[in-house]
Nucleic acid binder design. Sequence first.
DNA 1: ATGAAAGCGCTAACAC
DNA 2: GTGTTAGCGCTTTCAT
Lengths: 319, 319
Amino acid sequence: MTVSRVLRGRGDVSENTRDKVLAAAKQLGYVPNKIAGALASQRVNLVAVIIPSLSNMVFPEVMTGISAVLDETSLQPVVGVTNYLPEKEEKVLYEMLSWRPSGVIIAGVEHSDATRAMLKAAGIPIVEIMDVDGTPVDSMVGISHRRAGRMMAQAIAAEGYRRIGFMGTKMPMDHRARKRFEGFTEALAKEGIEVADQEFYDGGSALAKGREMTEAMLKRSPDLDFLYYSNDMIGAGGLLYLLEKGLNIPSEIGLAGFNGVELLQGLPRQLATMDACRSEIGRKAAQIIAQRCAEDGPDEPEAIELSPKISFGDTLKRG
Amino acid sequence: MTVSRVLRGRGDVSENTRDKVLAAAKQLGYVPNKIAGALASQRVNLVAVIIPSLSNMVFPEVMTGISAVLDETSLQPVVGVTNYLPEKEEKVLYEMLSWRPSGVIIAGVEHSDATRAMLKAAGIPIVEIMDVDGTPVDSMVGISHRRAGRMMAQAIAAEGYRRIGFMGTKMPMDHRARKRFEGFTEALAKEGIEVADQEFYDGGSALAKGREMTEAMLKRSPDLDFLYYSNDMIGAGGLLYLLEKGLNIPSEIGLAGFNGVELLQGLPRQLATMDACRSEIGRKAAQIIAQRCAEDGPDEPEAIELSPKISFGDTLKRG
DNA sequence: ATGAAAGCGCTAACAC
DNA sequence: GTGTTAGCGCTTTCAT
């Protein structure tokens, strides 16, 4: 009836009645039932955002980018967390789709068959984010982690480092870290360099792990002149350890991480790293969804590759 | 019809028909429409979780606790972020309530009148978390930040520190930090000590801010013998700065932060801090909601105060 | 400018 | 064990 019109600001309603309705609504503490609304209108202003983790420092920043854009629209993000588990991803997606969201933003391009099938069948805009090394279901925005690994390898080799160690997370969990590693070793190989030592961790405080792994690795392979870490947190741990040991950075030994986490500005030395364009990814993804939801002419799927930039900090340029 | 029964595993259905239905459902890629289901059954398996921020390190951990418990039930968390803005909190809550969730977990006990009114009127279990210094709408689980501040003050005084500086976030944004500060100054006053210097920041990388503020404060008040930081991140920045300067910690100058963030294990010295019981808070809150949703006899509101513990690390005990 | 009526896709209660 | 029916609280369309 008229009330519905008022509450949504649609249709022609006289000033008078509008005021009355609004007053009554506030008076009663009326909160519209979106469930009924959504069922009737077949429209839901929710965007499902599916990410592996919140405690990662990288996804909150993606979320910020998404929210910033979605706040300008009537769309709302709803996040689901998979803990890097494909089965959980499947479950979470299923749950979210059963609420018929207007779009899906999902991390990564690696999904189970069932997940891909659901995404395809959903009939709503899908944006896979973070990574562009793969075939998207629909749209995709991210960086090439393989290329990021290569870039870092080239920069390191260009500075003359030759005995290189690698530390990172256990790979099966994290496709993007794996791709960076692959790109890294591949580019080094082109220079005739092999990764001299490597170690992988799993769980625990990243800073402490970085410290421990660095100590262990240097004990094992004292001749290393560069350490590449798959994320900034363990890199920071390594940096602190090396500084304590009094090693000369970056001349004696160089370091680099990955992510460009702002959090770490303030370390004794600025760790070399690479920006993963996190908030830009979030913004672009949200824009794609918003556009597709709003526009009349159904746009084409987009595939956007952002360019990560190396920041040399104080730990890579030998000068 | 029967299909509905099968999909929900309710009622008596023959093996045979069940199999047929399930097969057909999978075949068609059928995803049930929860909107319709919820409307018909007047039940929604969603729990609204409203927190100020994700990039804080503290809330992801609370979320983990909540998820851990809710995963055992049919309930699902849906998070909304307020950025410490009361108006945004109001908006987010309104949006979430319009989906008729089964319960609400919301950070803090300070809310606008409208927010409190909505919470009261919602007719669902409400748990206010993090902080118990205030009057809850319904249930509440957290720590007393005022008491936490007092405890730290007492510990510091007991070690013989007398010239104490404080650094923290700009307070209006963060009631809990404010309460800690109040408790802190109050307990110091009892010992006849006044906070000798203080400084507040806003935005930026916490580690870098901690470093900068510490430098500035020590330049201003070189005679300080203790620095209390309202969070571990800025405390870590300060610690790194002091270590570089070659000050003797904790004999020359002591330090303490707040939160017990695991992230920071691996610093050259372990920063004294206080555990905020974050994941325990999440678990307890989720349990209360789950219980209230499941049980028949409607339980009473609970008010649970957890006890934070001081960890002295390497920066507080003069020994 | 306003009211009436027909669903949206399910669940729940009741027949069969 | 299975089919039937009447809503859930809105939006939408069509009359008035």
